[in-house]
Design a binder for these strands. Structure first.
Lengths: 163, 163
DNA sequence: ATCACTATTGCAACTAAGTTGCAATAGTGA
DNA sequence: TCACTATTGCAACTTAGTTGCAATAGTGAT
């Protein structure tokens, strides 16, 4: 299905901005943050606010889903064009060094019992640590991964073993 | 164990600020945000930065643990004085209306398989929706719950059924 | 192909959470 | 009691995200 048709089906107008955003997210192999999208040369000098609004709009009509890292930043991933693509209903991994998020599609989210009287609308399971590229144990050369922002909570690095 | 002794054991000085923060968190039945703590009349007019630093310090030495809601805000809970108290290793619930977080201690976090080469240091499982008091289905009178801030992501209210 | 209607975009200004640097203050062991 | 250093308070800053409003541009109907 073309992006144009997708947008129309969703009741949205086809615009260059939405097209570019969707194309980029379709090509990405992981959820991308606002900053990662905006920083991409393909996006040109798109207005910040427009991008925020575009992402929110696309998410609301179901063309994207979003996950928040423990840095408080939202990441977006498309799943409209490829119906077999990640629906977001699994654990996500966030690397504390390079700030990249990745999907763990093999590990779906378990069912959660609602507290009596409460209603659960959504769930999110984030695990964080160091990814294969950034893991100092594995890669002793400590290959720092460039152009990412540092995590907001730089001091919160309690390196616990997984209980 | 007294707060004084606790702090000493942790290698920290005993100060009125730390004492007040720990006492408040010991009495709380749920994780409290910086704002919830600062807004409490018992805290007086404590400096914002001092509170941030105090929470970080107490967390680093293991007297508190913290969980981030999907509003991007961290909540803190003590577990040093009562060793049987919530260690944080369970699912947390966040109400999108009143912004209160609660623990679901009956539902511990599952083991997560690390992606090859990666290292997981910590994990966090948040579910969100409406708590028993705020659930419009249950309580038709729609009793809004006072002095809390609205969620940052006010538009993101995709009220999905739990998959 | 044009028009008009409304959705979308861009700009400026704002908010809220959290951080940094530095000087002043106050625990604590000797 | 003293001195040393940890802690506190203040001012200024950063970053993610939001709001209001005017300008621009899709789209369906003609």
């Amino acid at each position: 299905m073309s992006v144009k048709k997708l947008l129309k089906t969703a009741g949205l107008r086809y615009t260059p901005v939405r097209n570019k955003v969707l194309e980029m997210l379709n090509q990405a192999d992981r959820p991308l943050s606002h900053q990662e999208i905006a920083g991409h040369p393909e996006m040109g000098n798109l207005d910040r606010v427009t991008l925020y609004r575009t992402l929110t709009t696309l998410e609301k009509v179901g063309l994207l889903h979003c996950i928040q890292g423990i840095d408080g930043v939202w990441r977006y991933r498309s799943h409209g064009i490829y119906p077999d693509r990640c629906g977001g209903n699994h654990i996500h991994f966030l690397c504390l060094r390079c700030n990249r998020m990745s999907c763990l599609p093999q590990q779906p989210l378990p069912w959660v019992n609602e507290p009596p009287g409460a209603k659960i609308y959504h769930k999110q399971f984030i695990v964080y640590g160091h990814c294969a590229q950034c893991n100092p144990v594995k890669n002793t050369q400590n290959n720092e991964r460039n152009n990412q922002t540092r995590p907001q909570k730089s001091t919160r690095t309690q390196e616990l073993n997984q209980p």
